[in-house]
Each structure stands twice: as structure tokens, then as C-alpha cells.
Design a protein around this nucleic acid. Sequence first.
DNA 1: CCGGATCCAAGACGATACTG
DNA 2: CAGTATCGTCTTGGATCCGG
Lengths: 126, 126
Amino acid sequence: MGAAHDLLAARCPSRDVLNRVGARWVPTVLNALDAGPMRFTELKKAVEGVTAKALTETLRALEYDGIIDRVETPSVTPPRVDYSLTPLGRSLLEALNPVREWAERHVGDIAEARRRYELNSQAEAH
Amino acid sequence: MGAAHDLLAARCPSRDVLNRVGARWVPTVLNALDAGPMRFTELKKAVEGVTAKALTETLRALEYDGIIDRVETPSVTPPRVDYSLTPLGRSLLEALNPVREWAERHVGDIAEARRRYELNSQAEAH
DNA sequence: CCGGATCCAAGACGATACTG
DNA sequence: CAGTATCGTCTTGGATCCGG
């Protein structure tokens, strides 16, 4: 190992994917859709705190990359739009599993590191 | 499977980690440090396009979370500061491997999805 | 050499009002 | 219901100058 890491460099797919998947509302939206297809308003309720605008932008971006699918059922009053993960999106979620596990396992370590950092800052700024 | 995904929800470690790791310069910095410890200016050269300010902020954030280590060698003119991955940071990089592999494998699929999206947009806006 | 301080531009995001 | 339009704010990051 070691050589393959070059692909994480400046202009590479991994960086784009990480930036996209790390965007404000993306993780929560993906998680919500993992439970199954959802309509816009359902999604808005599931992703608490998001505004319609931010949600729309998030969904458009994910649709643009082929991560989610948007199906509009053309029936007047009321309109119906369903969002769901594509196979591509599903495979992405699987690739994200180790990150999720890492986060769960090390949430304590990070909190501890932050406490240490605070203490050191205080000590130096006496 | 299915139940464990709940941890990717609104207020959870995974989301924080994803947001942090998805920040603008983080992936490239981590990749650079994977090759070994580096001084500030080396890092600045390795991460092309970054400004001193953005790099400093990125490094502080990673140090704060215990992902990287900052060692200041107290010698006047010139100062010397070395950055390196902590064991925690190294384990994070490993967890990121599947994402990197996913990105490499599906970069073509994403490009194709984007082309399809453009075409559909054109077709509708005739 | 390693940044901190300051100013500024662009984009992300929220609040609100409105529409097919 | 599923957005769009508009506005204002807040954050990110670039540019530049300065200091230990």
C-alpha cells in the first residue's frame, strides 16, 4: 500500500466525491433515502432543520451526479415527486460504511483530543 | 443491515466526520501527510492552490480533532514546525479507502449521469 | 519560516412570500 | 404538494500586508 493513495491528490475523483458527500445536508439526505423512496415533504420532515431551498439544491446536486433518482408523477393537484437512491447511490452508501463505523468508534477520542487542545491553549495563554 | 444506518442521521458523529473530511482542503492535506511528516511550506507546495491562511485553518481544525500532530521546534530564526498524521488520523485514512476506490471506479458513471442530466434539461426547455 | 491581522468577494444557507 | 423568487446573513476562502 501507499502508492494507491496518490489518487487522493489535488485534482482527483476522491476529492470531488468527498467534497460532495461532505456538503451540509448530503449525509442526512442519503441516510433518509436509505430507508426507501420518499416524497419531497417527507424528506423535508426527515431532514430536520433543512429549508425547502437547501433541500432542493441538495437533491438537484445528487440527481445531477446520478446518486439519486427523481420521479415526477404527472398528476395535477397535488403534484407528486418521489426521490430514491440509484444503484450507484446505494453503492456509495456502502463505501461510506467504514467511515461511519470509524466515526462511531472514535467519537470519544475526538472529544478527548479537543479537551486536550483547549487545555494546552489555556496553559500557553496565561 | 439497515438498522445501523440510523447513526448517519441528523446529529451524529458520522455526519460531523463527513463534513470535516469533506472540507475544501482536507482530503489533499491528509493525502500529502500520508507520505510522511511535513513542514508548513512543504505542505503548502504539496497542496497546490491553497493559501497560507486556508492551510493554517485546515491544519488547526485537524489538530483540534486529533487527526494530525503539530510539533514546534523552538529555535529562533527560522522557526520549524512539523505536521504529521496521528494514529487516529492514519486509521481515518484507512476508513476512507473504500470511498477512494468507489470514486475511482465510478468516475465514469458520474460523468455519464451528468451528460444525461444536461440532455434531459435541454429536451424539456425547448 | 510560519503564520497572524485585515479586508474583501463569492457562495451557502435561512426566512419569507408566492405559484402551478 | 413541490417547489421558485427574492432578500439578507453568515461563513469560506483569497489577497495583501505585517510580525516574531
